[in-house]
């Protein structure tokens, strides 16, 4: 409960505070900062250099946040898509360096698939960044699904951290619905997506939670493409809700897969 409530409240306060004091594009850093606050409340401050994947997640969120700030400042001078392609690979190399050095085919294949997944997530979030509050809604729904899948896979702390990403994004969304006040800037996107992807990668690499279920969650990020065809699309109040409901369908399917189908969650 604390894992969800604390980042929700923290992100709400930080979004309004930073947005009012520094500027609207900076408001989105509240998501990554609220995730870090939640991480500290669950697992304490990690050592530097961090030793375990759980400890690395704080630094992944903070580095992602800094990357976003730099991209916001240099938005016309940096190939953002290239950064969004390389950054997930860097996250994976840091989390999964043992698997990389082990040179086992299965582990390398898993890392490559994770990279494709990460690149897809960043790409889709970038593609829909300017459209209402579509991108943060995808992060919120994916975080909730990831939390449930991790919990079913006996990874309680990662479940709490995924819930923290969702709740922190929720705290940001509270300010942006029904009227959008703060854009989902690069700062917001890279902070939130880095935390989400880092948690997801750690779940795949270091737990018995269902990878199949996590793969189904990716459909949430494809849902952005159909938003224009959804009922109530384009209406500022009901449009985002309709999209949130649509994105929840693959999330529920993924959780059901984790619960009923995937062997990793039950053996």
């Amino acid at each position: 409960m604390l894992a969800a409530l604390l980042p929700l409240v923290a992100a709400g306060i930080l979004t309004g505070g930073i947005g009012g004091m520094i500027g609207v594009r900076a408001a989105g850093c509240a998501i990554a900062l609220a995730f870090v606050i939640a991480h500290l409340s669950i697992l304490g401050w990690p050592p530097l250099p961090p030793r375990s994947s759980l400890q690395k997640l704080v630094y992944i969120a903070l580095i992602g946040l800094l990357l976003g700030v730099v991209l916001d400042l240099l938005i016309d001078r940096v190939p953002v898509r290239t950064v969004a392609l390389v950054w997930p690979a860097v996250i994976l190399a840091w989390l999964g360096w043992q698997q990389l050095l082990g040179l086992e085919l299965l582990n390398i294949a898993r890392l490559v698939l994770l990279w494709f997944a990460g690149a897809f997530v960043f790409d889709r979030l970038l593609a829909h960044r300017a459209a209402e509050i579509i991108s943060p809604t995808m992060v919120l729904v994916a975080g909730l699904g990831m939390s449930a899948i991790a919990l079913i896979g006996n990874a309680a702390s990662l479940s709490q951290l995924a819930a923290a990403v969702a709740a922190a994004t929720g705290g940001f969304l509270v300010w942006n619905w029904p009227k959008q006040r703060y854009p989902f800037s690069m700062t917001a996107l890279f902070g939130a997506a880095s935390a989400l992807f880092g948690v997801g990668a750690a779940i795949v690499l270091f737990t018995r939670a269902s990878s199949l279920a996590l793969a189904i969650l990716l459909a949430i990020f494809a849902a952005g493409s159909i938003r224009a065809r959804l009922p109530l699309a384009g209406r500022p109040v009901w449009g985002p809700i309709a999209f949130g409901v649509a994105a929840t369908i693959p999330m529920l399917l993924a959780v059901a897969a984790a619960f009923f189908v995937a062997p990793g969650s039950t053996d």
Binding site: S52, S53, L54, Q98, G153, N154, A155, A156, S157, L158, A202, L205, F206, T207, R208
Partner: peptide
């Protein structure tokens, strides 16, 4: 299973 997870002994990583 829970003790083997990253919450405690994190056996896949260590």
């Amino acid at each position: 299973k829970h003790l083997r997870s990253p919450d405690f002994f994190n056996v896949q990583e260590f």
